[in-house]
Amino acid sequence: MAQSSPGDPIPDGTSAHERPGVYSTPGAGFERDTRYLTTRITADGRDGWPVEPGRYRLVVSRACPWASRAIVVRRLLGLEDALSMGVCGPTHDERSWTFDLDPGAVDPVLGIERLRDAYLRRDPQYARGITVPAIVDVASGAVVTNDFAQMTLDLSTQWTAYHRPGAPDLYPDALRDEIDEVADEIYRDVNNGVYRCGFAGSQESYDRAFTRLFTALDRLEERLTSRRYLVGDTITEADVRLFTTLVRFDVVYHGHFKCNRDRLTDLPALWAYARDLFQTPGFGDTVDFVDIKRHYYEVHRDINPSGIVPRGPRVGAWLTPHGRQALGGRPFGDGTPPGPVRADERVPQGHGAE
């Protein structure tokens, strides 16, 4: 990893979702750059980009936890016909995520091999991270936004005209303040917490990060012991944001990022909660464990110089009974679960928890 100071410009070519703005200097902690393209796609087009079905393409990698949020929300809301999705492979070179999963290694809609091309269409001098998720304007080929946190909120609140019948309300008005508070803690101490451990630049910064992460997980364990979901009695944006870290915890973060006080399977409420969500349509059917492991273990050569990808752990336990129904709650509230995953978006056989 290049040595930088938190105020330094991000060098060209930092392409992984964890690379942009991640600084780990001797004695220092972890800092993620948050200088995203914050243009919003809204119902009223206030930023010049109105919601229009078929106009945009969501570009993701199933390996990336930030992109996985968008994959889950898009599926729960039934936006497949309104917002197409391009899937990058789990690994990349120093320049960019690539479309190596597609025939000819070219995205069939955007006609590009590298996501970097879409960023340079937006700004030929773009020198920040080439991150996923990104939403691209198909006609111009330019990235509109890569602001992953706002992106999923806008899918819930700005794209309502194109939600499927029975789509859940993932960001209900009455609960937004609590959702925001819980989601902020999750982002700060859990989503980013695992990275603070993995990319710590000193023993001291690692120790601080480790304590902070597991203190947060202990709070969540207590919270979820008596309630099925994080906020209210239905699935919300907060649950999506926690799930994408939990589903990677034992397969990557426990060993690769040294987050090893406990496995997820050692935390009864969190483990049952995570299985409950995994078995809910829209969550587990988007998870690709093979891509997740390949990305972290092959790309992070500073942490794993050999590039060897571990065979384990077993993932079949994600399908075992969780018993969370006893706590009440209705996953989709007054709505309904999404239908089967469309054929062209299914996780490859053998990559899930079959």
Rank of each mutant, 00 (worst) to 15 (best):
P281L: 06
V251G: 00
R263H: 12
V247R: 09
L270T: 05
L267Q: 13
A272F: 03
V252P: 00
Y253T: 11
L246Q: 13
D266W: 03
L246V: 05
A274D: 14
H256V: 02
T280R: 14
A274T: 15
A269D: 08
R241C: 01
P268T: 07
R248H: 06
T280V: 09
R275T: 05
A269H: 07
C259T: 14
A269S: 13
A274Q: 13
F243S: 00
R248A: 07
Q279T: 12
A269F: 00
D250F: 05
H256K: 10
L264Q: 09
K258Y: 03
D266I: 05
R261Y: 00
L277H: 12
L270Y: 04
F249P: 08
F278A: 14
F278P: 04
H256A: 11
L246I: 05
D266V: 04
Q279D: 12
F243E: 09
H256W: 01
G255D: 11
D266P: 04
V251D: 01
T244S: 07
L267C: 10
H254C: 13
P281Y: 02
K258F: 02
L270R: 06
D276V: 06
T244V: 15
V251A: 15
F249E: 14
V251W: 02
Q279K: 12
R241N: 08
L264T: 09
H254P: 04
T244P: 00
R261T: 02
Y253P: 13
V252K: 13
W271F: 06
R241F: 00
D266C: 03
P268C: 10
T280W: 04
F243N: 01
L277F: 01
D250N: 11
R263A: 06
R241G: 08
H256S: 07
Q279V: 04
F249S: 15
T245Q: 10
T245D: 10
T244Y: 01
Q279A: 10
F249A: 06
L267I: 05
L264D: 06
T245Y: 03
P281K: 11
R248C: 02
F249M: 13
Y273G: 03
F243A: 05
T265E: 11
A269P: 02
Y253G: 00
L246M: 15
